[in-house]
């Protein structure tokens, strides 16, 4: 019994040691961000430079825009980086956030199987493409997770005058309730079309027969905004450190770091703090 207790004690000691070494670091802030800036590798590219120059650790909690804003609204983040103008406006209207600044833009694309049952590959009109997909009853994967991409998809369908729903027998419209990567995995597996941000698509590793179907539509613009927490509603947030990161992201150094990030030779994010799109 004694040796058993001793071993248990030793195990607990080792475990706590491992934990405390992981927890021991200087000042840190929580950045609630959308998944695309994390999954595409942009934040891994940017944040070490920021941390080196300021000593501030940035802990990125990457979620869909809807969930990231909800996390911040509960007071669990110090700064947000998201891409859904409507949800952002609501977040600010409700007093959670303040002073949004655009840091970068890129675009959304519709990807689809190379068999292209809806005959939309190579076109540049998102609404026409969605109408064609619906008319062909070709499988379409929807995120269904209230992310920025999901919100845009819903807006596009509304604009196309056709809101697909399972309740009305649209079996081809598949709401997977998952992140961008999960949606691309599902689309690859089901030979389906889906709406993706270009950053996640370019760095995605399981494309199978998927390829870009529709790009270059003005309605597919994707803007990334950083929003400070409003100190009146969220006094608990670490405003000074968050402001440093925000200011770094819109500074010349931060902006050129954003523009310098490439995957497979392609620029993923166009810096736009100076001239917001």
């Amino acid at each position: 019994m004694k040796t058993f207790t001793r071993r248990l004690g030793l195990a607990a000691g080792l475990a706590l040691l491992a934990l405390s070494s992981a927890a021991a670091n200087a000042q840190s802030i929580v950045l609630a961000s959308t998944t695309s800036v994390q999954d595409s590798g942009l934040l891994n590219h940017l944040l070490p430079a920021f941390t080196a120059s300021t000593g501030i650790q940035v802990r990125v909690v990457a979620q869909g825009t809807g969930q990231a804003l909800a996390t911040a609204a509960r007071g669990d983040a110090d700064l947000v980086l998201v891409h859904d103008p409507e949800a952002e406006a609501k977040f600010i209207r409700e007093g959670h956030g303040t002073d949004p600044r655009q840091i970068a833009w890129n675009d959304f694309i519709i990807v689809g199987p190379s068999s292209d049952p809806a005959k939309v590959v190579g076109t540049h009109d998102a609404l026409a493409a969605l109408k064609a997909i619906a008319a062909a009853k070709a499988p379409f994967v929807s995120r269904g997770d209230k992310s920025g991409t999901d919100a845009l998809e819903k807006r596009l369908w509304r604009a196309a005058g056709r809101q697909p729903s399972l309740a009305e027998g649209d079996q081809w419209y598949r709401d997977i309730g998952g992140g961008m990567g999960a949606a691309l995995n599902a689309a690859a597996g089901m030979n389906a079309y889906t709406l993706s941000d270009r950053g996640t698509w370019l760095s995605f590793g399981n494309k199978q027969s998927l390829k870009i179907a529709v790009e270059g539509d003005k309605g597919l613009l994707n803007r990334y905004d950083v929003i400070l927490m409003d100190p009146k509603k969220h006094p608990e947030a670490k405003h000074d450190a968050a402001l440093k990161l925000r200011d770094w992201l819109i500074s010349d150094v931060g902006q050129s770091a954003i523009g310098a990030y490439r995957v497979h030779g392609e620029v993923l994010f166009n810096p736009s703090a100076r001239a917001p799109k």
Partner: peptide, 11 residues
């Protein structure tokens, strides 16, 4: 971290 967290939780 996996081991640290899970061993602590097990203890």
């Amino acid at each position: 971290l996996s081991l640290g967290v899970s061993l602590s939780a097990t203890v």
